[in-house]
């Protein structure tokens, strides 16, 4: 069942984004920024946690989960340190993804040439 949920959730997010891209003048950059903000917004009331619970990795893969992870890390430290904790913890959960992406991009840029 969770596989079907994952399929439907991830598919729907991609579908919405494709409809926005085809019907408006917005670029992928606009859409991804918008989706990150929506993901963070949905997490205020714990709605995105429900998606993660029922859709598993289907809800972790889309870029909306980036916003969800950012605000989760921030709120975790904010519960210990108060409002200043937002600054301390904002990258706690996403640091793995960002650092791996940076290091692998750097190494690949060292050894390979761009293809056009």
């Amino acid at each position: 069942m969770i596989y079907l949920n994952a399929f439907l959730f991830c598919g729907t997010i991609c579908l919405i984004s494709q409809l926005i891209l085809d019907n408006t003048k917005l670029t992928p950059g606009h859409v991804t920024s918008l989706f990150v903000i929506i993901g963070a917004f949905l997490d205020i009331f714990g709605i995105y946690d429900k998606f993660v619970l029922y859709c598993g990795a289907g809800a972790i893969i889309p870029i909306t989960s980036f916003g969800h992870l950012l605000i989760h890390g921030a709120m975790d430290t904010a519960s210990k340190l108060g409002p200043l904790g937002l600054a301390f913890g904002v990258f706690n959960l996403t640091s793995a993804g960002i650092s791996i992406a940076l290091v692998s991009a750097f190494i690949l840029a060292l050894i390979l040439k761009p293809k056009h």
């Binding site: 969770i2 596989y3 079907l4 994952a6 399929f7 439907l8 959730f9 991830c10 598919g11 729907t12 997010i13 991609c14 579908l15 984004s17 494709q18 409809l19 085809d22 859709c55 598993g56 990795a57 289907g58 972790i60 893969i61 889309p62």
Partner: peptide, 18 residues
């Protein structure tokens, strides 16, 4: 385009769950 995005995106979601 929308159908392709839905189907491939969904497959990627299921694959990730696996």
């Amino acid at each position: 385009n929308a159908a392709i995005a839905f189907f491939i995106g969904g497959l990627l979601g299921s694959f990730s769950e696996l």
